[in-house]
């Protein structure tokens, strides 16, 4: 740790003086990464072990066995589908609500815009259990318990505030002259928004959409509290049910966990640019 603290000055001197590649640091970074990602490796490894035959998971999947996956798909395919529908629905709803709001907050000097932004920030302090507690009673009256629309609406609470902030931050950086030019040419607000602003904001919409998807996909609290039957069951709840009882078949639990991790892994590899944009949020500027 003390050597790490010397980083900045050393870095400047070393890279200027020698210009040689610091593969030693790369090795150290890979070592840190290996420790941090060991649980992910272990998940994949355990999912490939034959179930029930050995007491102990071996360190490597020497003879990969796919019975865990067979069980997982057999028992959880429906739940994975439910999760997928809810997540896609949440993305659509979140973007439909967040993009116009972000536009209004970034461009119009609407009175009360400050209050809206403040409310968005404060909303992050409200514990999910408080929201769930009140929603359960309301959903019970409205017949929204155990329903996909109910979960789409609730899960969007994870994504909408975040989407508004991230799209607005991006729109703040867009030149106002582009929109003004369109308006002068006679385009109404809706047309300017639809055919100029949205296409120009593509990257921020993708970033917001990907994160909204991940938030809804990972949702556990609303799935746990706003469903009471097997009718609508996201995969997070399926996993919780597995580990809620005594587990004697870890390979299928881990196989389900791997399947539930696919969106995160795919997004991190395939959409890394957008993920990076989302984590820093154009914020630490």
């Amino acid at each position: 740790m003390t050597t790490a603290l010397k980083a900045p000055p050393l870095r400047a001197i070393a890279s200027k003086a020698t210009g040689r590649k610091n593969w030693g640091y790369t090795a150290l970074a890979i070592f840190f990464l290996a420790i941090m990602l060991f649980p992910v490796y272990w998940m994949v490894n355990a999912s490939l072990q034959p179930n029930g035959t050995t007491l102990e998971t071996s360190w490597f999947p020497v003879k990969p066995d796919f019975t865990g996956y067979a069980t997982a798909i057999n028992e959880q395919a429906g739940n994975l589908g439910t999760s997928l529908i809810i997540s896609l629905g949440s993305v659509a709803l979140s973007l439909a609500i967040a993009a116009p709001a972000a536009y209004a907050l970034a461009y119009f000097k609407v009175r009360g815009a400050g209050v809206v932004l403040f409310a968005i920030l404060i909303s992050q302090m409200i514990p999910g259990i408080v929201v769930a507690n009140a929603l359960y009673t309301a959903y019970n009256d409205l017949g929204l318990l155990n329903s996909i629309p109910g979960l789409i609406l609730a899960d969007s609470a994870h994504g909408i505030p975040f989407a508004i902030l991230i799209i607005r931050a991006f729109m703040n950086g867009m030149p106002a002259s582009v929109i003004e030019a369109a308006r002068v040419d006679g385009a109404g607000h809706l047309r300017a928004f639809w055919s100029i602003v949205l296409p120009l904001s593509r990257n921020s919409l993708i970033t917001a959409g990907l994160f909204t998807f991940l938030f809804a996909w990972s949702d556990f609290l609303f799935a746990l509290t706003l469903t009471t039957t097997e009718a609508v069951r996201p995969v997070t709840l399926g996993i919780f049910q597995y580990i809620g009882a005594y587990v004697n078949d870890w390979s299928s639990v881990m196989a389900t966990a791997v399947l539930a991790s696919i969106p995160a892994i795919v997004l991190l590899v395939a959409a890394q640019k957008y993920i990076a944009a989302g984590t820093t949020g154009g914020a630490v500027k």
Binding site: M36, L37, P39, V40, W42, M43, L214, W217, S218, F220, T236, I239, F240, Y242, I243, V253, M254, A257, A260, S261, A264, I265, L267, L268, I275, T279
Partner: peptide, 14 residues
């Protein structure tokens, strides 16, 4: 970033 992107219930199970 991966540990942060995984569903929390997945991490708990692992």
């Amino acid at each position: 970033l991966l540990p942060w992107l995984l569903p929390l219930i997945v991490s708990s199970a692992v």
